[in-house]
């Protein structure tokens, strides 16, 4: 649980960890029911719709423009997004 929290960059407190661990176990147990299915003859699939090869030609078109791009940003500076220091 703590490992998953670390990977998600979340900091649950001890009480939350206990509660989430229970919930997660229940969810995993529920998903575990899928193991009961016999999938020997079912080919693996990565996608829910039977479609392949949907693409676009390599053509470019106008982007949004800096002002619109930054419109929702809590902070910006000289055309850049401004975020808390990373690293």
């Amino acid at each position: 649980m703590r490992h998953v929290a670390l990977l998600a960059r979340l900091k649950p407190d001890d009480e939350e960890v206990a509660r989430l661990a229970d919930e997660l176990s229940a969810i995993l147990a529920y998903m575990g029911r899928l193991d009961e299915l016999d999938t020997t003859d079912v080919p693996p699939t990565a996608h829910a719709v039977p479609m392949v090869n949907v693409w676009r030609e390599d053509k470019s078109s106008a982007s949004l423009g800096v002002e619109v791009v930054l419109a929702n940003a809590p902070q910006s500076q000289n055309g850049f997004f401004r975020v808390p220091k990373v690293l």
Partner: peptide, 25 residues
């Protein structure tokens, strides 16, 4: 110019749909 080649797909806006560039393939 910074952020001048950016669209909703680049921004990861909800509801956008990426489509692969054939030439990259």
């Amino acid at each position: 110019k910074p952020n001048s080649r950016v669209c909703p797909v680049c921004l990861g806006m909800p509801g956008v749909l990426p489509v692969i560039n054939k030439r990259a393939l």
